[in-house]
Amino acid sequence: MLNYVMRRALLALLVALTVSFGTFALFYFATDPAQTIAGEDAPQEMVEAIRVQYGFDRPITVQYLDWLGGVLQGDFGQSYFWKQPVVELIREHAKVTLLLAFSALAVTILIALPLGISAALRPNSWVDRFALSTAVSAQAIPNFWLGLMLIILFAVTFPIFPVSGDSSWRHYVLPALVLGASSVPAVMRLTRTGLLDVMGSDYIRTARAKGFTGYRLIVRQALRNALLPIVSVLAVQLGNKLGGSIVTESVFSMNGLGRLAVESIFNSDIPTVQSLILLFVLTFVLLTLAADLINAWLDPRIRMG
């Protein structure tokens, strides 16, 4: 197990380093930060002065290592647009996104797992058909439309929840539903096919021949095997929610990282964009690592292989 953990962690670290260099290089080659800071029409001397002042004239490797050193100490640089440290910006917005992402994940799990499991236990029954049609419609409905519909229904017609904002838990209910619903089809389908596979396997037949049946058969024999693919897909879905809830945040006017990303792109705020991209990528790297480790804990073949 220790061997496996070390191998995965080392791999994750390498990926993180590669990606950090990639994002850095992208901005180094694609933009002229001195020009951006100085403004479109600034005289050339001023641009050059800024270039020297900010150290943009140094070789890329030096700048990268300088930046990386800062990042490791929690210094992501200064936002050009908001004129404050990027770390503070991220800290302010991350709370909203974290809360939204995890409550959305809870919504996904609470809908997708029970639906997928009951569909798998009775294939081709009405439960199964209901689950599959739910999945198809959820896949087809765009996020923003579902968001608007929920606002009209539960915030305007029946004002149970606030229309927009992020100041109380009530503000999170509708966006979490919208964001959570978007992952339901993928997770539900995988739960269904995964569990169907497991239930049709030889070792479940063995367990039945030993006297396992009903609830005990599922919980004590099938569940652990069926969880393996679900853990992986949930990690990816959570990554999407942490990084990509731009539409939902916009519809509900929530001040999360998605909004921050959109605004800093519009305002060419390179340090912020750069930091956010790095943050999103690292989130994925960490989540994948976490999923791998959970699966290794669940499945001896992985941790001992």
Partner: peptide
Amino acid sequence: RGRRIGMIFQEPMTSLNPV
């Protein structure tokens, strides 16, 4: 099942729960 009648299957590679 498993108590008064025991059963052995053909595929030893897949008939035991891997986890």
